[in-house]
Design a protein around this nucleic acid. Structure first.
Length: 838
RNA sequence: GCCGGGGUGGCGAAACGGCAGACGCAGCGGGCUUAAACCCCGCGGCCGCAAGGCGUGUGGGUUCGAGUCCCACCCCCGGCACCA
């Protein structure tokens, strides 16, 4: 009869995640449980942030993989007494909206807004503790007004400038791209090979901050991300040197497709080199085929060959041009310059292994000491002049370039000097003579932010025939993105096709003028969104100093490391500008950053519709519940590692939650038994210690495993029929609290069912009792010469003598030890006793 | 080529220099059930009847003791790479 009624009750009280989760989510929302105030007495502020999602349409497993542990961490720190800001929003501008619009006929704005509604609902189903009152949507005028404000500040500080230059052009996306958005010569977004187009574009002077951005050593970030940023910035120390042209070029007017312009003549060619110590060994010069001086330097006899080469180079893809194993080719321009240090006459060549966009777009070639120059000289029969003698060099021609340090020869007054010293000496000599001097060069280029597309924030600039480029005054922002526009991409900005948008008046002189029609790179939106969360409704500023002081910088940021050289670098740049504007405290936006790994499809490949390996989170939630799905993602493995999503494994977590449910709603009989109670209390407190430490270190997988062990222990006690009532109550209470960060709904339900008042999410994280964590007796492993020979039980505080005695008293061990000549023993209290014998 | 991160059961993974494989998945055996599912119990690195031996990519080393520390190498993943 008893069994009957118990199983009846268990059936009636089955764990039903769907019902529980919907109920508690509604309740939390109604109670405003996660609304965050800027200041709460006795609770220090702490800002946790996970990267906001792009409004692609549906939340995918990757979002859950990123956000569920982030939420768990935020909840844990809240329980640890912090006033935690954990906001959410949407990165809503960008190309996919336009592409979807072109395909499906919906307007990008409507498409995006619908996705926001959909994704917001999906995010809510996670049961995360986001403060939705602080939501930002980057495509809403209330937000992009401030994105434009940022542009204006950059412009006012001379950090934004327009320049005609070769730009990365993606023919599929129909827009220019920043350097950071080109990977292996292809568009980072769509993999189409990029072309170089000469266009007038807006840039941000991120290079002004190169040195400061390079200084990331002290940041609590993953090492690999810091290294990626340092590589990307690419600092090189060296010198700039000027070479005199044999025939100076006079100023003259040049007419081209871009109109007539004055081209200043020059008497020199400047180069950047990291090897000023080899300056005396220069035997030729190489300019990039795109170098502006090339047409002016080329002799009529060479004009045909040069033009042909330039033509060929312009058609080569970036990939071809950047292949390191590519044959070095070039042509002679027919003219010469003079090496000022030696007076040597040096022929000027062009070759496509020289990049127009790095340094001065020209290099001095020292074939004896540079592999590339050596290969080039070999191919075209150019002289090789040794100026750094390899050890034991006999004066014979080199078989390959000598690039290591050495001693200078054939270098006039620098002969005999070690090359490391000569670098400095020659650089300062150049400076003294006015021929150049020490120089630091970065690989990082200025950030190209113009996009010839519709769905972005318009660049707030007006071009006036009289005043030139004038920023739209802050009080006239936003420059609204018109809704009624033909947004099909044509290669020029769709806004240019809207006369009503383009026609305006100059803010300075009031005369008719034209608006800039390009929009801004969407990475602008994400470069400052974390500041806006601190003060999302401010109409007077992007963020007030007060709110910034309350929350910034972000204490814990999480997101994928694919953004290492894009978002994470841009955001650091913005933050430094914000600091210079007096807007925010500190120098860095993200004190601590954690890069989670990437979750893959069950087949181990990136999830994508075309591969058909997409797991829809909504389905998982529907089938298993949000708590189960959250816990499973955290249980899969280390968070920074990522890996395939195994659809079959989740049942294990579901079984665990069901067992947890069962033991709590259908407990064993209560007795008073302090000995058994103490055993249980030991397990509970040891778990408490372990789970707390794991959460601190973001080891969610082992935290969940420890909770599983606790549940298994409770299950054993339940099967045994009875247990100490008080210890059981404590165990259940602690279990609910420990479950709260990872599985917020079931934790709340079990908390309530045990008659506790208030939300489990407003409780403090319990403190473990160290006295209960240690055990009274411990099992010692007894080894003989490092091999396990047996185990003994001793008191926890046993000394070596006691442990030895216990080992000898053990019949098997005693016999084994008697048979050998024990030299000494190693005793590790609580762990092992190792006898060392001959 | 350079930089970073990894190689542990059939699979995901654990492991302050101290019992390798916790916790799970899949598998096998059993129970419950008319049956199936669910659920519960048990078994589970390899060789061996056993005693025992061998096992954390490979080869060395340090140590009473090495998955863990040191040296050399192999393989996988990520980033950078004609940047003068």
């Amino acid at each position: 009869m008893t069994t009957e009624s118990t199983s009846e009750r268990a059936r009636a009280e089955r764990y039903q995640p769907g019902e529980i989760e919907a109920r508690w989510q509604a309740r939390w929302q109604a109670d405003g449980l996660y609304r965050v105030r800027d200041h709460v007495e006795g609770r220090p502020n702490r800002y946790h942030l996970t990267m906001f999602p792009y409004t692609s349409g549906d939340l995918h497993v990757g979002h859950w993989w990123a956000m569920a542990p982030s939420d768990t961490l935020a909840r844990y720190f809240r329980m640890r007494g912090h006033n935690v800001l954990f906001p959410m929003g949407f990165d809503a501008f960008g190309l996919p909206a336009e592409n979807a619009a072109i395909k499906g006929g919906a307007h990008p704005k409507d498409w995006t807004d619908a996705n926001v509604v959909r994704m917001r609902r999906q995010l809510r189903s996670m049961g995360a503790s986001f403060d939705w009152d602080r939501e930002v949507v980057s495509s809403h005028a209330g937000y992009y007004r401030w994105t434009q404000w940022w542009f204006v500040q950059m412009f006012k500080r001379g950090l934004a400038y327009k320049k005609a230059a070769p730009a990365n052009w993606c023919p599929s996306c129909n827009t220019t791209l920043a350097n950071e958005q080109v990977k292996d010569g292809a568009c980072e977004r769509c993999d189409t090979l990029v072309e170089q187009r000469f266009m007038a574009q807006w840039f941000f002077r991120i290079t002004d901050y190169a040195e400061e951005l390079l200084d990331n050593e002290a940041l609590d970030w993953p090492e690999h991300v810091k290294v990626m940023q340092r590589n990307w910035i690419g600092r090189s120390e060296g010198a700039e040197a000027s070479f005199a042209l044999e025939q100076p070029i006079p100023n003259r007017i040049v007419t081209s497709d871009h109109g007539a312009e004055l081209v200043r003549g020059t008497t020199e060619i400047r180069v950047f080199t990291t090897r000023p110590d080899t300056l005396h060994g220069v035997t030729f010069m190489v300019l990039a085929p795109e170098h502006p001086l090339v047409p002016l330097l080329t002799t009529p006899a060479q004009a045909g060959a040069v033009r042909e080469y330039q033509e060929r180079a312009s058609h080569a893809t970036e990939i071809e041009r950047q292949a390191t194993d590519r044959e070095k080719t070039g042509v002679f321009t027919g003219t010469y310059c003079i090496n000022r240090l030696t007076g040597d006459r040096v022929p000027i060549w062009i070759a496509d292994y020289v990049l127009a966009t790095y340094g001065t777009g020209a290099v001095m070639a020292v074939p004896a000491h540079d592999e590339r120059d050596f290969a080039f000289a070999g191919r075209y029969g150019l002289p090789v002049k040794v100026v750094i003698a390899p050890p034991d060099w006999d004066g014979q021609p080199l078989a390959e370039a000598w690039t290591a340090p050495g001693t200078l020869v054939a270098s006039k007054q620098f002969d005999g000097m070690p090359s490391t010293e000569a670098k400095r000496a020659i650089a300062s000599y150049l400076e003294q003579q006015g021929w150049g001097g020490p120089k630091i060069q970065y690989r990082l280029r200025d950030w190209l932010i113009s996009r010839q597309r519709y769905w972005g924030a318009p660049i707030p600039i007006v071009t006036c025939p009289d005043c030139g480029e004038v920023a739209v005054p802050e009080d006239q922002l936003p420059v609204e993105l018109p809704y009624d526009v033909e947004f099909r991409p044509t290669g020029q900005s769709p806004l240019a096709l809207s006369p009503e948008f383009v026609a305006t008046t100059c803010p300075q002189c009031g005369k008719p003028a034209e608006r800039e029609t390009d929009t801004m790179d969407t990475f602008m939106c994400s470069s400052w969104y974390f500041m806006r969360y601190a003060d999302p409704h401010n109409e007077a500023a992007p963020v007030s100093r007060e709110a910034a002081e309350a929350w910034l910088p972000v204490a814990q940021y999480t997101g994928g490391s694919e953004h290492a050289t894009m978002h994470l670098l841009y955001a650091r740049f913005f933050y430094k500008v914000a600091r210079d504007l007096g807007l925010v405290p500190g120098d860095e936006p993200f004190t601590r950053y954690f890069a989670q790994g990437q979750i893959l499809g069950p087949d181990g490949r990136r999830m994508s519709k075309s591969r058909g390996n997409v797991v829809a989170p909504d389905d998982q939630v529907q089938k298993w519940g949000a708590d189960c799905f959250r816990a499973y993602l955290m249980f899969l493995g280390p968070w920074d590692q990522g890996g395939p999503y195994d659809v079959d494994g989740i049942v294990g977590v579901s079984r665990w939650l069901n067992r947890t449910w069962t033991v709590v709603v259908d407990p064993p009989a209560r007795v008073t038994d302090t000995a058994r109670g103490r055993e249980l209390r030991h397990t509970v407190h040891a778990t408490l210690k372990k789970v707390g430490e794991d959460f601190e270190e973001k080891r969610f997988n082992t935290a969940i495993a420890a909770l599983m062990e606790l549940t298994n222990e409770l299950q054993r006690l339940r099967d045994a029929g009875s247990t100490d009532g008080d210890a059981w109550d404590e165990a259940v209470r602690m279990l609910s609290l420990m479950l709260a960060p990872a599985c917020p709904h079931i934790a709340e339900e079990l908390w309530a069912r045990n008659g506790a008042t208030g939300s489990v999410h407003q409780q403090s994280w319990p403190v473990f009792d160290p006295a209960l964590v240690v055990r009274d007796t411990v099992t010692l492993v007894v080894q003989l010469n490092g091999k396990v020979r047996g185990r003994i039980e001793v008191a926890a505080g046993a000394d070596e003598a006691a442990a030895r005695a216990a080992a000898l008293a053990d019949p098997r061990l005693g016999e084994a030890l008697a048979a050998v000549d024990v030299q000494r023993a190693i005793y590790v209290p609580g762990r092992l006793l190792n006898f060392v014998a001959r």
